[in-house]
Design a protein around this nucleic acid. Structure first.
Lengths: 252, 252
DNA sequence: ATATGCATGTCGTAA
DNA sequence: TTACGACGTGCATAT
């Protein structure tokens, strides 16, 4: 890297390839490779990808991404913690291995158009607002958003068959389960809520109310919710101004 | 691109930056940028990311990825179909806009270490085996994998409250719902199965059996399954040899 | 466009 | 490590 942030080789020789890969893996650089390649994956599932041009990204934490020219998702990948090495068989092959579960990714490099190493320095974390956990905070701050007299008692409360978002009581002392969704709630959300309500009825006895709290409902979710005698409270996730969650910006 | 697959500029001037970005967007190249940048996102949620070194990937289909040095997931992104442009304010800013839902991603490029355009050609599709849909095919081919006398009748059958993986009948003529999972089944899977069984009991009347078909169960899933009188059949997803799903390799 | 569910999901958190 | 559920989930599919 000779003191620079970026090292690039166009159509590198095998020797150059080996040197740059080895150095990058050693030094903790991000490796980016443009290459014609074939990909073989075997692990939780198994896949083959024939020859074509792709962008390969290898991060110092072991993350390994192979991107085609379309879609947000990598066509093949390996998660953080995987160990990568460059093998020389007929041609150069990138091999990434994960253990637990055992998964291997092999990339036959048929033609390397470019390889680059990037000494990236980054100390920042994403600060995001509009999440479900912020909805929960908002409800604890202003319980009347649910209904007059609602008292939230537990957050992420483990019960017999799952984990309830918010557990509280209404003005009459009935147990109330809230299931929060940051976006339009689907059947899945109603199933969750029903599971929690049924578990609490068994554990606790007596009447238990279930309220789905979300900006809106799908048609099917509303149908099931009504059939099951569950309730809906419309609520949007809040948008904190400036920094959201993440690292707190220290004032002054 | 002057006839080559790859064009690279190290520490480009603003003019070079503009030229390469414009040309790549026009020509359908994959753009890769190493830069110190700040990121602002607003859409379904809202986020801020302070200054740091990242890898930026922009695909010809509008996919936009910003990667930090860790994790498999991009820290910020825009999905396919988004429209990107390079604006010049105080400095260069990449702006990507998606409509429906309206989402904007802005990347302030504080220091561009490298920019490259890659004229990638790729006509291959991933061929994957070990999926849930292959489990379903296997069960239709060999219903006795479930139990003697089991007859599968419908695949992905829409019912009142959801879509059943496989609907069939047992040797006694009872309706049987199968919920398939390609990996260890969790509480969620049992909730699904229960929802389908209850819906069919209402719709159809009479006894309806529910069988969760998966390689294994979590402790909680087993607990709920037993409480609800549902059944479990251990089954691994099959591994087709050679090509799996995807493009069929024509034999002969 | 809406609804529904899979995914090599990935990721964070708690027991 | 396992279990559980969120995610700006993304993505395919069916209506």
């Amino acid at each position: 890297m000779s003191g620079e942030k970026v090292l690039v080789a166009i159509s590198p020789s095998t020797e150059e390839l080996v040197n740059i890969v080895d150095s990058a893996l050693l030094e903790g650089d991000v490796l980016t490779i443009f290459a014609r390649c074939r990909v073989h994956y075997d692990g939780r599932a198994k896949s083959e990808l024939g020859s074509g041009d792709r962008v390969i990204l290898i991060k110092p934490d072991g993350s390994f991404l192979i991107h085609q020219t379309k879609k947000r998702e990598p066509v093949n990948w390996q998660p953080p913690g995987s160990r990568v090495r460059l093998e020389l068989r007929e041609g150069p092959i990138l091999v990434s291995v994960r253990k637990k579960p055992r998964e291997t990714l092999e990339v036959e490099l048929e033609d390397v158009y470019m390889i680059s190493a990037f000494r990236a320095e980054d100390y920042e974390e994403l600060s995001l607002t509009g999440s479900e956990s912020e909805m929960a905070e908002m409800i604890f701050e202003s319980p009347e958003l649910i209904e007059p007299g609602f008292r939230p008692l537990f957050r992420e409360k483990q019960i017999r068959h799952g984990i309830v978002d918010i557990l509280g009581k209404d003005s009459r002392g009935n147990l109330v389960v809230l299931e929060l969704k940051r976006r339009r709630a689907e059947l899945h959300a109603v199933s969750q809520l029903k599971r929690y309500v049924e578990a609490l009825m068994e554990e606790n006895g007596g009447n238990v109310r279930g309220i789905l709290v979300a900006p809106s409902l799908t048609s099917g979710a509303r149908r099931l919710l009504e059939k099951e005698g569950l309730e809906f409270r419309k609520l949007e996730p809040p948008r904190r101004t400036g920094a959201g969650k993440g690292r707190q910006t220290t004032l002054l």
